[in-house]
């Protein structure tokens, strides 16, 4: 036998899906399902994930999966939970996986309703910060100063002027047992959080940063690299909350300047092209610094 250990395993999210080259979201989903195991029913709203996994006749899902419409995944999930309860199928759990448009914007009311009802659903938001399925339009999850197709940078525009909605905090305010942020760049951490979430009952929420080579416009081999930079600069803090309290954060050894993260992405290019972007870059650095302070991200601090 070969000295090196080579592990084989069956994927619950198989090849042949039609995600773009280097899709962070597709990668995240495979690992989510590795963490949940096969005894789950997955609900997805309309969006990238739905589009690249649903062409009729070709499903990569090896767990039961349902997509209904755009804004109702949390309610569909509640319906599945209710049916499982009524049928006495307590072992099967329900996981919803939806993008930021569905979660932050159009399905927000349904999400809040599901959280408030206390339904046993793990809701995972795969966040790529815009409506990538329809060409990269602005969402409530788009970070400040990013250029999107509906809020583009231009002669009189520096991109999105509003803040990214702080959804983990809003979700946590519903008093649910588990909230976490994760990144597809840290797969072991991501899986650990999904596994942990599955130990709780009631509504749980994980928001995963899933860099998008097509939408953010960086080379497809850099998906994880960009994801790591986002975490290391403090713009994407990774934390876990149990019952409303932060119980852990991913510490940073060294703070990466936000410009290192931003400069490789076309959605921020306008900030580097003229002096005009300086103040926005400073604001983004200030935002990262605020996160670092708020969540105590520095290892030394």
């Amino acid at each position: 036998m070969c000295a090196a250990k080579v592990e084989t395993r069956e994927s619950l999210f198989v090849s042949g899906h039609r995600a773009c080259h280097g899709c962070g979201l597709a990668l995240a989903v495979r690992h989510i399902l590795e963490a949940t195991g096969p005894n789950v029913i997955v609900v997805s709203p309309t969006g990238c994930l739905e589009t690249f996994t649903s062409p009729y006749g070709y499903s990569p899902w090896r767990v039961p999966w349902i997509h209904h419409v755009f804004e109702n995944a949390p309610a569909v999930a509640s319906g599945v939970v209710a049916a499982l309860k009524a049928q006495g199928r307590p072992v099967t759990r329900v996981v919803a996986i939806g993008g930021d448009g569905a979660t932050f914007d159009i399905g927000f009311g349904a999400l809040s309703g599901m959280l408030e009802r206390g339904d046993d659903v793990l809701y995972i938001c795969t966040d790529n910060g815009a409506y990538m399925n329809t060409g990269g339009q602005r969402s409530g999850a788009t970070p400040s100063w990013a250029s999107t197709t509906t809020h583009p940078a231009g002669k009189q525009s520096v991109g999105k002027t509003e803040r990214k909605k702080d959804l983990p905090e809003i979700v946590a305010a519903h008093g649910i047992p588990y909230v976490a942020t994760a990144s597809v760049a840290y797969l072991r951490d991501l899986k650990k959080k999904v596994k942990k979430a599955m130990t709780f009952h009631g509504p749980r929420y994980i928001q995963i940063d899933t860099p998008c080579p097509s939408g953010w416009n960086f080379p497809s081999h850099l998906t994880l690299e960009v994801g790591r930079q986002a975490v290391k600069c403090g713009l994407v803090p990774l934390f876990e909350m149990e019952n409303g309290k932060i119980i852990g954060v991913r510490k940073l050894k060294k703070k990466l300047p936000v410009t290192e993260y931003l400069q490789g992405q076309k959605r921020y290019r306008h900030l580097f092209e003229s002096d005009g972007g300086q103040s926005e870059l400073q604001k983004l650095q200030a935002e990262a610094d605020k996160n670092i302070e708020k969540y105590g991200l520095m290892e030394s601090g």
């Binding site: 209904h68 319906g79 349904a110």
Partner: peptide
């Protein structure tokens, strides 16, 4: 539920299950 939209959606999920 918090809306009729969700009421019908709950039925869709329950029926599919």
């Amino acid at each position: 539920v918090e809306s009729e939209f969700s009421a019908a959606s709950v039925l869709a999920g329950a029926s599919a299950a």
